[in-house]
Amino acid sequence: MELLKRQEKWDITYTHALGEVASWFFVQIRDNAKIYGRRCAKTGRVLVPPRAFSDQTLEPTTEWVEVGPGGRIETFTMVYEPFQHLPEPPYAFGFVQLDGADTAIGGFFKGVDLSDPAKAAEKLAIGTRVKTVFADKRVGDLIDFWFELA
């Protein structure tokens, strides 16, 4: 028998409030091109990206600590497949432990030729040193900065 289908698209807009901690963090990125973490008073761990409380102790974080701009690749991937509403491939992104931080923050890796995946993977290997590069025009978002090989 003939089986019918019905198509529908969801297009929903949200305006998310960032809260005090993330707002301060992104203002520093936008206005001063600096990245800060928050220190847990109990353990001394510096959380980057900064959060108002530690996931380990549930204690409030108490101190802003400038981190980076250098860091170390903790993991990465390179995407070669297009997905709707996600960037055009290929692109590389992953997580970097910035100098002075205990945790890793996500970001794109730019300036690496991704045409040969195996070669690119060697360049982005875990432990590789990178530097943070800031966009000239910054809006206060995670994509105001990215990482390039140091």
């Binding site: 998310h16 993330a22 993991t75 990465f76 995407v79 997905f83 692109y91 995670l142």
Partner: peptide, 18 residues
């Protein structure tokens, strides 16, 4: 939506990174 979603995170990329 604040710290991670500006990146093209997905379950495939998350587990590729693992």
């Amino acid at each position: 939506p604040i710290y991670e979603r500006p990146l093209p995170q997905g379950t495939i990329t998350m587990l590729a990174m693992s």
